[in-house]
Design a protein around this nucleic acid. Structure first.
Lengths: 215, 215
DNA sequence: TAAGCTATAGGTATATGTACCTATTAAAAT
DNA sequence: ATTTTAATAGGTACATATACCTATAGCTTA
């Protein structure tokens, strides 16, 4: 077997780009086993035999189905397939979309062969790769996640702990036992949670917790 | 208390459309609590207080961030918020995008007030609404959504309806009033839901509903 | 026809949650 | 040094949910 091979599908609406990529990957342990000229073609190919592919190398702007859309579909349906997005642009929106689409990497088309190989290496080893010049852009996206986290931060540690147990379907009494405190204390925390989460019942707390990533 | 209110955010880059919609929704149990002139503004508003909103009514073509992108972000980050997309066009691509973005509904701007209200009613009761003339278009892309929906299909329509209202933080009594049935009936449905959803309390029902896209 | 499911509704009893209070202690912030 | 806050816990009262029952009417399916 030797070093295991990575089976790749390339999606790009310019055949020249595909050919160039294939040459770059020649003599590496990467097999380009399929090509597609747009996202739809790519997803169709994948649908035929999803397990055949380890990684998809895709352009971002393609007719019918864009690279980010393709990525979203892949991640939703075939999460074992990794996705590296190739883009002409390094604008914030495109990167943001790629990040939201859960791409494993994003590099620019003017990247050299070495950067391509580095990105592939990192990704196939379970990591991610984003071009250095777009890292600041990603940080902008970071904040958004933080906003949610910060919301949970208005809850005290104990409140978060109790909310977490509520979501696990424990009753106040069970929570009290588990934390070695009085049921009354738990109920008081619950009351405070209502105020802080701006809701009026445990149902609202559960929704809040899920919406804010506490699970 | 009466029937509970639905808090709505409207996103459209034409103030006239916003004003028109507000008038259409006047005197209904819908509160338009925020307005935005593009998707970015909308998502910023939502980020400030996600739980404030029950539903977003959005145009599809807007500067900075389109309606479908907005929808995707909402569904990814705040799945409790429902989205009804308003479009000028009924072309396949736009509808497909809306479906992929997991919009709860898609209607055309030339729809009348009654269709708008019908769509809102269906959506806020846990269903979806797509203009009749675009239904055939949707079928092609339907598959993905079905996987999740099939889980919910073990629930009877009435059970789904009641589950939906439970998640909206209504008590059994309030649900009974709203549906003109006895509180006992609601409680019986609740019991059946426990069995079908394999959980032991309302907390579990809420988690099930959110996990399966019923909101 | 019989069986099964859905939706309806009632009874009874208990468990749990929710809405208000007050109050103490320790720690953190002003 | 004073004020706030978190975490603790108690009381009382009421609301709501949960666990069991039975039962009927309508509709679908074997």
């Amino acid at each position: 077997m030797g070093t295991e091979n990575i089976n790749i599908l390339i999606a790009d609406d310019h055949q020249m780009v595909i050919d160039g990529l294939k040459m770059m990957l020649d003599n590496q342990n990467y097999n380009v086993i399929s090509e597609a000229n747009n996202g739809q073609e790519a997803i169709d190919l994948i649908n035929v035999n999803p397990l055949k592919y380890d990684l998809v190398l895709t352009d971002i702007s393609m007719p019918l189905l864009s690279g980010t859309e393709l990525c979203k579909m892949i991640k939703a349906q075939f999460p074992h397939i990794q996705v590296l997005i190739l883009s002409m642009y390094n604008n914030a929106q495109a990167v943001k979309e790629a990040v939201l689409a859960e791409a494993d990497g994003y590099i620019l088309k003017n990247s050299g062969r070495s950067e391509l190989l580095q990105a592939l290496h990192r990704i196939t080893n379970g990591g991610t790769y984003f071009s250095q010049d777009i890292v600041p852009i990603i940080y902008g996206q970071y904040q958004k996640q933080k906003v949610q986290d910060e919301k949970l931060n208005v809850l005290s540690p104990r409140e978060k702990e109790i909310l977490s147990l509520i979501v696990k379907e424990l009753t106040s009494e069970e929570i009290a036992e588990k934390l070695f405190i009085s049921k009354k204390t738990v109920d008081n925390h619950r009351q405070h949670l209502f105020v802080k989460c701006n809701c009026k019942s445990t149902v609202g707390l559960v929704k809040y917790a899920i919406a804010n990533g506490l699970e």
